[in-house]
Simulated scan of single mutants.
Amino acid sequence: MNSWSRNPAAGAPVPALMESDHPVPADHLSLPERGFAVDRRKALITAGFLWAAFAAMVFAVTHALTATVDSGLLRLFRSGPDLSLAGPRLVLETVRDVTALGGVFLRNLFALGAVVALLFFRLRREALILGATVVSGWIANSALKLLVGRERPMIVPHLTEAGGESFPSGHSFGAAVVYIGIAIAFAAMSRRQSVRYTIIGAALVLSAMVAASRVVLGVHFPSDVVAGWLGGAGWAFLAAALFYRPAESLVPPDR
């Protein structure tokens, strides 16, 4: 039975714990001291395939081999004499929500949040790699846009604001770099290969959805977003492999 004591402030009796009573111990979260090493060989092979496909898209676009497919797919999602988006209003709202995930503000906000989370997990090496991946990816995408200099499609009405060069799609490239880069960083925390593949696979799907949304909104040719996604995904895997050793030298395993 509990004994009773008085609250000095209010003078009301309150139960006091007997010596035999013990508080329930709090749950403990074990944080990894280090992430597990990125398989740089697999990352480089994956990046090689993706960049080879990106180079093929550059060749096709610069030699006007994608014009018919680009035009047909842009019209695929439209109907009526005004070429409005097919389907209910909810479709347009959903597509705009998806495309916002690839916008500069949101994707960089998620990247910053991921870096902070990795630092809380004491995974400074992975945080450094992710930060370098995002910054270098932005530089690479900007350079590629200037090299090709393709104008945006004017085949169907644009359903969102868009400016700058069209090839490759910045939303597609940036979303792939950020979300796949985040997935690679957090996947390294698990020893189970199935978990790592699931996390990275989810990021591939999400970034591909962002890419597709740009075509539905009419602001990019399909070849723009395919190339952007291939280039961004390739950059994420390439950076994970190339930045691993420098990051490891800056953040030794025993720290």
Rank of each mutant, 00 (worst) to 15 (best):
A127W: 03
E126I: 13
R122T: 13
S194H: 00
G102S: 03
G170K: 05
G113T: 12
A43P: 08
R107D: 05
G201L: 01
A64T: 08
R196Y: 01
A208N: 13
L238N: 06
W229T: 04
M154E: 11
R255C: 04
I184C: 08
L90A: 14
T160L: 07
L112T: 15
S223C: 05
G102F: 02
G164M: 00
N108I: 06
S30V: 07
R191W: 06
L242R: 09
I184S: 09
A227D: 01
M18I: 02
G102P: 11
L128P: 08
R6P: 09
L242Q: 07
A233N: 05
G131S: 08
A187I: 08
V91H: 15
V148T: 10
G234N: 15
P8Q: 06
W138E: 14
G48Q: 04
L90T: 15
D97Q: 08
R75L: 15
E19G: 00
V177S: 06
R196S: 05
L76I: 13
L44Y: 05
P246H: 12
P8F: 10
S207K: 11
H158W: 10
L101K: 09
L118E: 12
E151F: 03
V226Y: 04
V205H: 14
A132W: 02
F243S: 10
G163Y: 02
A10V: 10
R214P: 04
